[in-house]
C-alpha cells in the first residue's frame, strides 16, 4: 500500500472519532476508582466508629493531605508519562518531598515518645498487619482501569508510566481508606500507608512494562 493511500484513510478517520486527552481520561479513572474504593470501604470495612469526632480533629485531615498529595504526585507524573515526550520529574519530586516530610514527622513522633515500647506501639498501631494489604486491595480496581485507559495513550517508558499510575491509584484510595482507618500517628502512616501505595506502584510498573507497549 502506498503511504499516500494510508494518509487518505487516516484523514478520513480523523473526521469521525476523537479520543479524550490524558487529563480527561485520568479524571474519569480517579472518579470511578474512588467510587469503587468508597463502595468497598462502606460495604466491607465500615467507617471508623468515631468518624464524626475525627472529622473535627487535625490528624484525620493530615492523613488525608498526605495521601491526597501522593495521589496528586502520581497524577502529575502519569499525565506527562502518558505522552511520548513527557517526563515525570515534577510528580516524582512532589511525591519524594511529601514522603520525606511524613517520614520525618513519623521519626520525630517516635523519638519524642517516652520509651522504645511506646514508639513500637505507635509503629504497630491497631492494624499494622491489615493496613497495607487493604490499601492494595482497595486500589486494584482503579489501577486496573487506569492501566487499561493508558493503553490508549503513548507512554514511551511503560514501566514508569505504570508505576505512576499505581502511585496515583494508591494515593486516591488511601485517602478513601482514611474513612475507616482509626490510626492517628505519622509513625504509622509513614510506614504502612506508604507501603500499601508503593505496592500498587510496583504492580503498576510490572504490569505496565508489558501491557503498555504500543
Amino acid at each position: 500500500m502506498r503511504t499516500d493511500d494510508l494518509i487518505d484513510a487516516l484523514a478520513r478517520d480523523a473526521e469521525g472519532t476523537r479520543d479524550p486527552a490524558p487529563p480527561r481520561r485520568l479524571a474519569l479513572v480517579a472518579a470511578l476508582g474512588a467510587l469503587a474504593a468508597l463502595v468497598l470501604v462502606l460495604s466491607w470495612l465500615g467507617t471508623r466508629q468515631d468518624l464524626a469526632q475525627a472529622l473535627l480533629g487535625p490528624m484525620f485531615w493530615m492523613k488525608a493531605v498526605y495521601t491526597a498529595v501522593l495521589g496528586a504526585a502520581g497524577y502529575l507524573a502519569v499525565e506527562r508519562l502518558s505522552r511520548p515526550d513527557g517526563s515525570g520529574r515534577r510528580g516524582w519530586m512532589l511525591g519524594a518531598a511529601i514522603f520525606a516530610l511524613c517520614v520525618a514527622a513519623g521519626a520525630y513522633q517516635a523519638l519524642v515518645s517516652p520509651d522504645v515500647q511506646a514508639a513500637l506501639k505507635m509503629l504497630h498501631g491497631h492494624s499494622w498487619r491489615s493496613c497495607s494489604p487493604r490499601i492494595l486491595l482497595l486500589g486494584l480496581p482503579m489501577l486496573g482501569l487506569g492501566l487499561w485507559t493508558l493503553r490508549g495513550t503513548a507512554p514511551t517508558r511503560p514501566g514508569l508510566a505504570g508505576f505512576a499510575m499505581g502511585l496515583f491509584s494508591g494515593g486516591v484510595v488511601a485517602t478513601v481508606y482514611g474513612l475507616h482507618c482509626p490510626e492517628h500517628t505519622f509513625t504509622f502512616i509513614a510506614l504502612w500507608y506508604s507501603l500499601g501505595v508503593l505496592a500498587l506502584a510496583a504492580i503498576g510498573a510490572l504490569v505496565g512494562r508489558w501491557a503498555l507497549r504500543w
Binding site: 494510508l6 486527552a21 490524558p22 505522552r83
Partner: peptide, 10 residues
C-alpha cells in the same frame, strides 16, 4: 504515521 494518528490526543 498510524501511531501519530491513533495517539494524537496525547
Amino acid at each position: 504515521l498510524l501511531a501519530v494518528h491513533l495517539k494524537r490526543s496525547t
